[in-house]
Amino acid sequence: MPAHAGVLHPAMNASATPPALSVLDLVPVRTGQTTAQAVTSSMALAQRADELGLRRYWFAEHHNMPAVASTSPPVLIAAAASRTSRIRIGSGGVMLPNHAPLIVAEQFAALEAIAPGRIDLGIGRAPGSDPVITQLLRQSGTTGDVERFPSHVQDISLMLRAEGAGVQFTSGGEYTVRATPAASASPEIWLLGSSDYSAQLAASLGLPYVFANHFAGTGLQRALDLYRSGFQPSEALPEPRTFLTANVVAAPTDEEAQARALPQLRMMARLRRNLPLGALETVEQAQRGLTAAADAGEQTLIDGMVSNWFVGSGEEVQASLTAFAAAHDVDEIMLSPVAGSFDSEPLDATPGRVQTLELLLS
């Protein structure tokens, strides 16, 4: 890795206001770790985020990946909600083509009842896995109709309301569908994406929008411009509302931050080269693997990715995130805390991820 890893941004205006911080969690699974230990680690991280005053904590949806245990956002949201008291908990996101809209609406109506005023429903249309798993997830048929994604988003919004949604029959008459019998409030719905399509759809529906900057290499500013310029005010949202995601590792020293970033960087490099994936390496495994491979292609990918990450000391990363938020006119950054673990660190905790949050909130 280069001597200093991280995003280079314009000098921060001294008067710039630091953005609110949130967390996106994929529930990483490292070598030798069980799913139970990985989930325990994430629950502890959610509790610490709540204590530190972060704004929200979202779980992603991914399937059949050896290093990712966030297969079921609603289950993880319920668990995290029961362990926290203030922070908003949500999905980042539910991959809607994998699910029937009514099931999604019912799940999140129940979550809203469990943690009133604290639930976010982030929705995306990517598969969240490989083609084989996608077929297994979509065996029920119409759930996998990506072309109906816009109408499915609207259906969920209507079914979550207290008055419900009306199903009109061609033979006449109407049938009311409610996600829960007596809703007092609804989750906040966000549209997620990394393309022009998602930005334009969020704008046309008057929904808040999140650009998945943590894995999309390009297109950030264009997506924001399309969303803001095309935004149509809605009953729920009179003005555009957006924030950004970012891969982040903060540590007491640059050297430690760079070391902790390496396992995730190597995994992402393998993913982009369509190579077999395994559990997330420890820092020492990643260092040995990078040295042994002597692979120019892998190193080139790593160098390119890390240039868009925020890796360094707490103070450096704080300054870069503030400049990044100001440059794109957002008041919130959702961190994907991708700090890896050393061999000596416990399997039921992720000290590097906890440390990242603590240093950025100090």
Rank of each mutant, 00 (worst) to 15 (best):
H4K: 05
A5F: 05
V7Y: 08
L8M: 11
T17E: 10
V23P: 14
L45Y: 06
A46N: 14
Q47Y: 03
Q47G: 13
R48V: 09
D50P: 13
R56V: 00
Y57W: 06
W58L: 13
A60V: 14
E61I: 00
M65P: 08
A69T: 08
S70G: 06
S70N: 02
P73M: 09
V75D: 09
A79S: 03
A80E: 11
A81P: 00
R88A: 07
R88D: 07
G90Q: 00
N98A: 04
H99A: 12
V104D: 02
V104T: 07
P116A: 09
P116K: 11
I119Y: 04
I119W: 08
D120S: 02
I123W: 14
G124P: 14
A126Y: 02
G128P: 07
Q135M: 09
Q135E: 09
T142F: 03
D145I: 04
V146I: 11
E147V: 09
F149L: 02
P150S: 12
V153M: 08
I156F: 11
S157A: 14
L158C: 07
L158T: 11
A165H: 11
G173D: 13
E174I: 10
V177G: 08
R178S: 11
A183M: 14
I189S: 04
S194P: 14
S194L: 15
S194A: 15
S195T: 14
D196I: 06
D196R: 12
S198P: 10
Q200C: 05
A202K: 05
P208E: 10
V210K: 03
V210F: 01
N213Q: 15
H214P: 02
T218D: 15
Q221R: 15
R222G: 03
P233I: 04
E235R: 01
E239R: 11
A246I: 10
V249N: 01
A250T: 09
A251V: 02
A261M: 03
P263Q: 06
P263V: 06
A269S: 11
A269Q: 04
R273Q: 08
N274Q: 12
G278H: 09
E281F: 10
V283F: 07
E284R: 05
E284Y: 07
E284S: 11
T291G: 00
A296M: 01
Q299C: 07
T300E: 13
L301C: 07
D303M: 13
G304V: 08
M305N: 05
S307A: 15
S307C: 10
F310V: 06
F310L: 04
A319C: 06
S320D: 04
T322C: 06
A327H: 07
H328V: 10
D329Y: 00
E332L: 09
M334Q: 02
G340L: 08
L347M: 07
D348R: 00
D348N: 09
V354L: 11
T356F: 05
L357Q: 10
